[in-house]
Amino acid sequence: MATDAALRRLLRLHRTEIAVAVDSAFPLLHALADHDVVPEDKFQETLHLKEKEGCPQAFHALLSWLLTQDSTAILDFWRVLFKDYNLERYGRLQPILDSFPKDVDLSQPRKGRKPPAVPKALVPPPRLPTKRKASEEARAAAPAALTPRGTASPGSQLKAKPPKKPESSAEQQRLPLGNGIQTMSASVQRAVAMSSGDVPGARGAVEGILIQQVFESGGSKKCIQVGGEFYTPSKFEDSGSGKNKARSSSGPKPLVRAKGAQGAAPGGGEARLGQQGSVPAPLALPSDPQLHQKNEDECAVCRDGGELICCDGCPRAFHLACLSPPLREIPSGTWRCSSCLQATVQEVQPRAEEPRPQEPPVETPLPPGLRSAGEEVRGPPGEPLAGMDTTLVYKHLPAPPSAAPLPGLDSSALHPLLCVGPEGQQNLAPGARCGVCGDGTDVLRCTHCAAAFHWRCHFPAGTSRPGTGLRCRSCSGDVTPAPVEGVLAPSPARLAPGPAKDDTASHEPALH
């Protein structure tokens, strides 16, 4: 009773807030009518008042009428009001819900409408889902798969039609296919003929059939049928067999079959498995989609049935006599038709004709302190090069084509190399640097090759510096006499390219 009084008091307290929050009759008014909170006449009256005075006034009048009803109607109103779709449509209802007392429970059932309790003993237990329907569909599909699609060729003596089998029958139906081979029951999904010589313990000319048996419980189990008994694959494991010639990621696949039913060829011909030897223990289905393919039931050349050999690369099948050149017997292992072999060759040939990528240039590290003349020119003028003790990398590039010797140069053309002071002394051009340390401070000019250098860098042994005729380390061993002091540049003949010694390969005349 306390809860009923509290709900009535809360409705009177929030009546105006609810009326202002509800700006549309749908969905709240319609939901109240659906849950029998508002009768039909009051529903029509509220809609009429909404058209006349507006939605807030109409709902305020409806809530005032609701306060005169019993506690069950008020409880049902609060339940409908706080439904998710009403809270989404009328956003101003959320503060009312947040301020609702926590001790007021809106989930209690309506009085007088409590459903009768059902004894637990009368409640049926839930049924577990079964796979009976899938099993029945598999039974119905198996006879259809064994139905012949056409008439065999005159040369083929193997013609068999499976008798119709009602689904209610649980007995196995067997077809006489000759040579002791028996087909599987209607619940078998796949059958492959297997030679009895590969099964340990088999006697006589009995041949087993590799099947997948579907049981009534819905589970499946792969086994071997020899005669009327089934054997699990673990009985046929043979770890010492060295003649297993397995197909790549293979499961067994029928390579020879008669049109209309699988079996042995007439005249004692023995149908073979995809792999010879003992049956392997793992009978998992292969991951290669080509091995799941269903080959055609007629020859791809003459479009006739009979004894066919199936290609492992495509769905086509052929007569042995229709092949070019014809085959006398079934080859062992994987067999592919000429079209598949030709496609494989065409895929391999473009790969062989692809040009080989060019090898990157060989990189040879230079000892610290040495650099090529090109690196000396590329440096920024007026700045010493940083990191001189790091190992430089010199790339061996292809030799350029031989060019004509340089033409003779006048001494005026070499004027930018040297600057003559007032006393006739050779001065260095701006930006000249030593080729060893890279520093341009207090550098000297070689009178023979006009290269800038430090005496301490080229002659670290402490050799005394002569007063005139300074030469760098590369030119100090040259027998050519030094030019007379005061000459602007060496003779043009000295600039012609010539053979250089091994220790002077990195010091070429550089223009500054």
Rank of each mutant, 00 (worst) to 15 (best):
W78V: 01
A6S: 03
E136T: 07
A73G: 00
I181R: 06
Q225M: 01
D103H: 08
E88V: 02
P233G: 12
E237M: 14
A144M: 09
K161H: 08
P27C: 01
G150S: 15
R79S: 04
S248C: 10
A144R: 08
E51G: 03
S99G: 04
L66E: 01
D70E: 09
D34T: 00
A141S: 10
P27A: 05
Q213E: 06
E216W: 04
V20N: 01
G155I: 03
R190N: 12
A21Q: 01
A152R: 09
C55R: 03
R174E: 06
W78H: 03
W78P: 05
E137R: 04
A258D: 04
I209V: 06
Q69A: 02
G54N: 00
L13Y: 14
D70I: 04
K120N: 13
P119C: 10
H30K: 06
M194D: 00
Q44G: 02
Q213Y: 13
V22E: 00
D198Q: 05
S249N: 05
T72H: 14
G227C: 08
S64M: 01
L63K: 00
S107L: 11
R257Q: 06
C55N: 01
V104C: 03
L81S: 02
R89F: 15
A193P: 04
T46A: 02
L75V: 14
H60S: 01
L175V: 05
Q173K: 14
R12E: 00
Q262C: 09
E136P: 15
T16G: 02
G263D: 14
R149S: 13
L210Q: 02
A141M: 05
R149Q: 15
K42Y: 00
G219A: 12
S153M: 11
L63E: 00
E17A: 07
A134I: 14
Q69K: 02
S196W: 04
L210E: 01
P129M: 05
S99Y: 00
A19G: 05
A58S: 01
R203C: 15
N179W: 00
E53A: 11
P115M: 09
A261E: 11
Q69W: 00
S187W: 02
V38I: 15
T147Q: 06
P166Y: 13
G267H: 14
A202H: 10
L210F: 10
A205P: 06
G112S: 08
I96V: 12
K133L: 01
G218Q: 00
S24E: 06
S234C: 15
T147K: 07
F215L: 07
E237L: 12
S248G: 12
E137A: 14
V37L: 01
K114Q: 03
P109V: 05
P119D: 08
Q157W: 02
Q57K: 12
P162H: 15
A145W: 15
R272I: 11
L63S: 00
Y231N: 07
S249W: 15
R174M: 03
R272C: 14
G242Y: 15
V206R: 04
L93E: 04
L146R: 03
E270W: 14
F230N: 04
A31R: 01
S239D: 02
A193V: 02
G267W: 15
G201S: 07
P119V: 08
P116V: 08
R139L: 13
K114L: 10
V226W: 13
A33I: 00
A205I: 01
A191V: 02
P56M: 00
A186V: 01
Q157L: 13
D76R: 04
E216C: 05
Q262Y: 11
G150C: 14
L81N: 15
Q189K: 09
G204C: 05
I181S: 08
N179D: 04
A152Y: 13
R89W: 09
V80S: 01
Q182Y: 02
G155N: 02
Q173T: 14
F236V: 08
G269R: 12
P109Y: 06
S187G: 06
T46I: 04
A140V: 14
K120V: 10
A138N: 04
L63W: 04
T46S: 04
V104K: 00
A141E: 15
P124V: 15
D34H: 15
L49V: 04
G54P: 01
P266H: 11
